[in-house]
Design a protein around this nucleic acid. Structure first.
Lengths: 351, 351
DNA sequence: TCGCTATTCCGAATCGTTTTGGAAGTCAAT
DNA sequence: ATTGACTTCCAAAACGATTCGGAATAGCGA
């Protein structure tokens, strides 16, 4: 199961066997044929550790998954992983997944990946305004690509979703429905994506509206919505993630109100689930899988030595209208328009 | 950043530095102190590839995630990963994640992990009745632990959830509510867990009831439930997973029926989401995280050489009652008992 | 002084691959 | 016969850690 073994049975040197399999042109066609045949016969597989040691590359890429409450369960990361996997496999790279609680643990995980040379590059998500991970990787000039921007003067590669525009347009949509008290249940504002979503909401509104900031779980969405309903009485609420929206949906129903009639709700992510909430959730779809594949492309280029300056992309998100939002109640002219809207579920209609 | 560097600045041999750091007792206390101090000073990290090559161990564990429609998105795998991560980190092992579509791709992924010696052991989930992966790993006598049993005469290590008992009890609960036409929306019966869940349902029922088998997605759950309602008119339906149940919930509402009154639904998994469906989903909770941690323990023992025979555990699952099931309508005596049940959401009551 | 045991250190081999810098042989042109 | 160009092969040196089998020194009793 080693080059030496093939070399032995064929009476060749290890060098020649290696070069034959690697496709060098200083190996005769006949010899190459004998080598590849024998390699196939014994099902030769190169020893990954030896290759890595010699080449000085790990041939692997790292991802650190946060395990804080509500973080890791997030389908967001799973969707990212599912898209990263095949893209990396196509490039012959392994995927090393580490889990860490945000905080000291987390930086230790990144340091271990970098300093033990376990990976050649890193993908990271859920960037923060002041992101210690990004600062560290930049300091080490270690190749990485982020999903999301961050507040630093130094250039790094990223793919981001334009949450600001998406949330501005979603809020404008709600304004167009006649809503005036439009709340936002946001993620903690240390997250960069929360910044942008809030900025978009604020831009459309002109002035601050009812706001809550919570970690993105169903439970927190529920609590925040219940609180919002009690103290601020919004007629529409934008939720920074679908998980928050699911909790919010429930809080509205729990208060004896009807989602889409008494209170409009718009989410963000377009989880598979969103079609099957009641009512089906109007939400903002972001192309996570495509973004993840692009991130892998960028990372390969970074590992190959390309500069990050040209690798900064912000992609649009698109609102998918379902039935959790609609015309504001206080607008009298609208009552007759309501029914068709809620009876029409674009998903169900094609079943 | 190598032993040679430390040896150089300290005027020692590489051997001594290595042995000092490894804790051998043929190194004087004074030398060991000098070595550890210098190692700390330059923040020495052993080269993972070199260590692996020399020791002949990968110091990593592999997981292959299925990427078929509805498979990978499944929160099940994310919950597993989130529990595996810390347990492996504690043992100093890396986690190598590969993605593969079930089929040829999948076996290639397993072969690559084993034959390129990329991992020392493998964790696998969603076992199947005739599981090619298990057969292969047994053939290679490669250490692995499965989540779920399989139909083979050869012993292997596993942790499984007793879905049969859980589903029997859930079905008995529905029978106790007066339901007589109790359907099952199962996962494809190539999956072992589907076998057990169906067996439990069947055991309680005595005779086959309305049955559908689909891949576990919301969409498929929706379709299967709609079909079931049209052709079989069940008053209660057991769903093999919560994702199926979410779709089923929607199909019931879509048919103009009320979940918990006209049709009872029970899921399986107890996703975080289950509390926030409408109505909140009665479902069966399985301790995935604890099981995953136990699987890691077993895998470490297997890698250390322990036999798998004593590593076969089946754990109980527990039903958590929420509001998606209740007394059957046709039973006249029950009408006054219904209301309190559905107004009482054990989760909400503690908020 | 001689042997003996502890203590402390180190040279060299090893893991399996890649790669540098030739070496040996063939062939045709001079 | 010599030269040069080409083809085909290989020895040996890496990569960095681990480990076997000593070696050197010191201390001690006989």
């Amino acid at each position: 199961m080693s080059l030496a073994q093939i070399a032995g049975t064929l009476g060749l040197s290890v060098t020649t066997v290696s070069r034959a399999l690697a496709g060098y042109d200083d190996v005769s066609a006949a010899t190459r044929a004998r080598v590849t045949a024998e390699a196939a016969r014994i099902d030769y597989r190169p020893n990954a550790a030896a290759r890595r040691l010699r080449r000085g590359r790990a041939e692997a890429v790292g991802v650190v998954l946060p395990t804080a409450a509500g973080q890791f369960d997030d389908p967001f990361f799973l969707r990212m992983l599912s898209a990263i996997g095949p893209a990396l496999a196509a490039a012959g790279l392994d995927l090393l997944v580490t889990t860490a609680r945000p905080g000291a643990d987390e930086m230790r995980a990144y340091r271990s990946l970098v300093e033990n040379r376990k990976v050649d590059g890193i993908l990271l998500a859920r960037t923060r305004r002041h992101d210690e991970r990004i600062a560290y990787l930049l300091d080490q000039s270690f190749p990485f690509v982020a999903h999301g921007r961050s507040e630093t003067s130094r250039a790094f590669a990223y793919v981001d979703i334009d949450g600001e525009t998406a949330c501005r347009e979603a809020t404008e949509r709600l304004l167009g429905f006649g809503h005036r008290r439009i709340g936002l249940i946001n993620a903690p504002d240390s997250y960069m994506f929360a910044q942008y979503r809030e900025a978009g909401w604020l831009a459309a509104l002109g002035a601050p509206g009812p706001l809550r900031r919570v970690e993105a779980t169903e439970e927190n969405g529920f609590q925040a919505m219940r609180d919002l309903l009690r103290t601020d009485g919004p007629t529409a609420v934008l939720c920074a993630t679908d998980r928050i929206a699911v909790g919010a949906l429930h809080a509205v129903a729990d208060a004896g109100l009807v989602v889409g009639r008494d209170v409009s709700i718009i989410g963000f992510d377009d989880l598979p689930l969103a079609t099957y909430t009641s009512p089906p959730l109007t939400t903002i779809a972001q192309p996570i899988e495509r973004a993840a594949r692009r991130m892998v492309e960028m990372l390969l280029a970074r590992i190959a030595g390309a500069a990050p300056d040209a690798m900064q992309e912000v992609w649009p998100a698109t609102l998918v209208a379902r039935a959790s939002d609609g015309l504001a109640l206080q607008d009298p002219q609208t009552q007759q328009n309501r029914e068709p809207k809620h009876a029409t579920n674009p998903h169900l209609s094609r079943l």
